[in-house]
Design a protein around this nucleic acid. Structure first.
Length: 648
RNA sequence: GCUGAUGUGGCUCAAUGGCAGAGCAGCUCAUUCGUAAUGAGCAGGUUGUCGGUUCGAUUCCGACCAUCAGCUCCA
């Protein structure tokens, strides 16, 4: 007998070799029916795992992450089984659970149109109804290979071939007549996937490599009951309404034009105003923290990019202004980054260790010729404005300066109300990738260990991204998810030990020797276009007062109140408020409705009473009518909110 | 760049191998109104662009442009 510690510290005894599923069954029919996977000693396992010794066991249901993962993984197997039933010639690649559901990559001549997805979904429901038992078995690599070859599963064979010769057993899962190579864990049977929806069919390269064949990827989501699926789909619809690419256009923040081109958004007055507010905020804050503003050219000769290495790495992604022969004539290119231009500022004189750190910031407009399929709203564009900076310092200073760079980024994010939504990624090089990265293994090990030490010192919780580093150094990326759950980099701080040497940047140290400074590349608020996009989504267009392009709208009730309304507006403007008067001969309700739809933070209703008393009737966007105030009282209240950058 | 989808007035959406229609927005007039839509009238489109098939194309076909989802990429 073995002793199994269950949830809440309860200890029960079982026969050695009892499976987790049998334990769940012994604990109650409800738990048995809900069981998806288990945790043994804190690690997630399949429910079929026999318990061989005393252990702590937790049965995971759909409510826990591990259980959800198994549930969605099984859903993907059901998807694959349905596809194989309908299209026996289809070849299966991989089909994992993801953060929000599951997918399966499939090689099939038939294109999975909407109608076909519906057919597959119907077949999945049939498989669920059949409530097939799911069993696990293991084979040595050579027998496993034989099995998948018999099935004609060439992609599975490729996966197994990688494990051949290591002596490990390859696991399979079987449900009905469908067998799939898989590490698991999986549900006990297919009958538990009560509600399923296939959400999309897209393309995806085999093994994530664009040199490989493009397969078809079917995405889906599933739940234990239909009501949860319905709620999930409704939430997705709600999220779509916040999408900056839709809302930002509707509210008049930006537009695009076919005549101008892809990835070249036109910021309309509202968008341009918010961007100006953000820029002033960033530049002022950076000045307070010892950053010096530069203004460098939007283009430069190819020579400068050849030294930095960008010409080799990113020439295709640069807008090169070609006039003639590259060999004999000057070739200019629009700048894709500001680094080497700010280095020229550093190089204007010889530097002493006493001069360091030198911190240069710039609100820099950059140009990158992104691939046509990459462009998206304000998130990924071909011309953008970065709050960019480069900091030159000694090795002793690098930790403190890095912390300073991080501090300002965190301060920005907190002020904007985005901080709670971000996560950190420590982006490292991939030693296997000989093409992308410059420098030696020693240089990389040093730079990464410096950054790793700093991050650990600061107690930052990060994920490691192998192969995500810049070609010249490791990065701390501050990641954020958009309204659809897609993650992007908002802010990045990089340590660079390579480019100073390439550009001959030196300083004279205390002992008289010449050394290359460390360079930190960093952004404090990221790219303004992208930040604006995320703010639109975060606030669903209802910006905090300090950021709102129009802060106050004065709404006269009848035409005879227009003069007083304009007086109120002039008073507001004299205190720096962005205010307008809606002087159209419309009914009050009509004008308020429009102001609400435009997300104006405050509407000031003025009629006979207000004009008489020198007051305004305050309507707050988020609340409604909040009563009457004297004009100076309203102004001082809201001035305080603007000064503190209140997020309301 | 790749896979797939989409493109009809400013917006949301109809319709059709044979004169393209509605609501909202806009404009005009009337209404002067107290916290999310006053009424009436008017105007607005070479159906993304170019080419092909056809007696006739917005509809069918092709190329391109743009937009969307995803992949790849992101200095």
């Amino acid at each position: 007998m073995i002793r199994v510690e269950l949830k809440g510290g309860v200890i029960k005894e079982y026969e050695r070799g009892t499976t987790a599923l049998e334990v769940a069954k012994s604990l109650g029919a409800g738990l048995y029916k809900a069981a998806c996977a288990c945790k043994i000693g804190g690690k997630v396992f399949d429910l079929r795992t026999p318990l061989q010794e005393d252990c702590a066991l937790e049965i995971l249901t759909f409510e826990e992450a591990g259980g959800k993962h198994a549930f969605w993984h099984t859903s993907s197997h059901i998807l694959a089984q349905a596809v194989k039933r309908l299209y026996p010639a289809a070849k299966l690649a991989i089909g994992p659970a993801i953060d929000n559901g599951f997918y399966y990559d499939i090689d099939c001549d038939t294109s999975f149109s909407q109608e076909i997805l519906e057919k597959i979904e119907a077949e999945m429901k049939a498989i669920v109804k059949e409530s097939l038992e799911i069993t696990r078995f293991e084979l040595p690599a050579d027998e496993a290979l034989k099995l998948v070859n018999e099935q004609g599963e060439i992609y599975k064979a490729e996966l197994i071939a990688e494990h051949a010769g290591k002596g490990e057993l390859i696991s399979f899962y079987k449900q009905g007549d469908f067998v799939d190579l898989c590490a698991g864990p999986h549900l006990p049977d297919t009958g538990r996937v009560k509600a399923v929806k296939l959400t999309a069919s897209t393309g995806a390269y085999w093994r994530g490599d664009s040199k490989n064949k493009m397969l078809q990827r079917i995405y889906g989501i599933s739940f234990t009951k239909q009501a949860d699926l319905d709620a999930h789909l409704a939430a997705l619809e709600e999220a779509k309404k916040r999408d900056h690419n839709k809302l930002g256009r509707e509210l008049g923040y930006f537009t695009t034009s076919e005549l101008v081109g892809q990835g070249l958004p036109i910021l309309l007055p509202k968008g341009a105003r918010v961007m100006q507010i953000l820029q002033r905020f960033v530049e002022d804050e950076e000045q307070k923290r010892g950053w010096e503003l530069t203004k460098t050219p939007y283009m430069g000769k190819s020579d400068i990019y050849k030294i930095s290495g960008h010409w080799d790495h990113y020439r295709d992604g640069m807008f090169v202004l070609e006039h003639g022969d590259e060999e004999t004539e000057e070739v200019l290119a629009l700048r894709p980054m500001t680094c080497p231009f700010q280095y020229q500022a550093y190089l204007t004189k010889s530097r002493s260790y006493r001069d360091l750190p030198i911190r240069y910031n710039e609100t820099s407009t950059l140009f990158r010729n992104e691939a046509s399929g990459e462009m998206h709203g304000l998130i990924r564009v071909r011309q953008f404005t970065l709050s960019e900076g480069h900091l030159m310092c000694t090795p002793e200073q690098v930790e403190g300066e890095f912390r300073g760079c991080l501090d300002i980024a965190i301060y920005m994010l907190k002020t904007l109300g985005l901080y709670e939504d971000v996560s950190y990624r420590f982006s490292q090089w991939d030693p296997e990738d000989k093409e992308k990265y410059i420098g030696t293994k020693e240089q990389w090990d040093t730079a990464q260990s410096v950054m790793g030490k700093i991050l650990d010192h600061l107690g930052i919780d990060y994920k490691i991204g192998v192969g995500e580093a810049a070609f010249y150094g490791p990065k701390l990326d501050i990641q954020i998810k958009n309204v659809h759950g897609k993650e992007d980099t908002l802010i990045t701080i990089q340590i660079d030990m390579m480019l100073a040497e390439k550009f001959g940047m030196e300083y004279v140290d205390a002992d008289g020797s010449k050394k290359n400074p460390y360079i930190i590349h960093r952004s404090s608020i990221g790219c303004y276009e992208r930040t604006l996009a995320l703010l639109i989504e975060k606030y669903a267009g209802a910006f905090p007062l300090w950021l709102a392009p129009e802060q106050v709208r004065v709404v006269p009730i009848a035409d005879r109140h227009q003069e007083y309304a304009r007086e109120v507006r002039r008073e507001l403007e004299s205190f720096g408020f962005r205010a307008t008067v809606d002087d159209r001969s419309e009914k009050l309700g009509y004008k308020l409705r429009e102001a609400q739809l435009e997300r104006i933070p405050y509407m000031l209703v003025v009629g006979d009473k207000e004009a008489e008393e020198g007051t305004v009737s305050v309507r707050k966007r988020s609340v409604g009518d909040v009563g009457t105030q004297k004009v100076p009282a309203f102004i001082s209240d809201k001035l305080a909110d603007v000064t503190t950058k209140l997020i309301d």
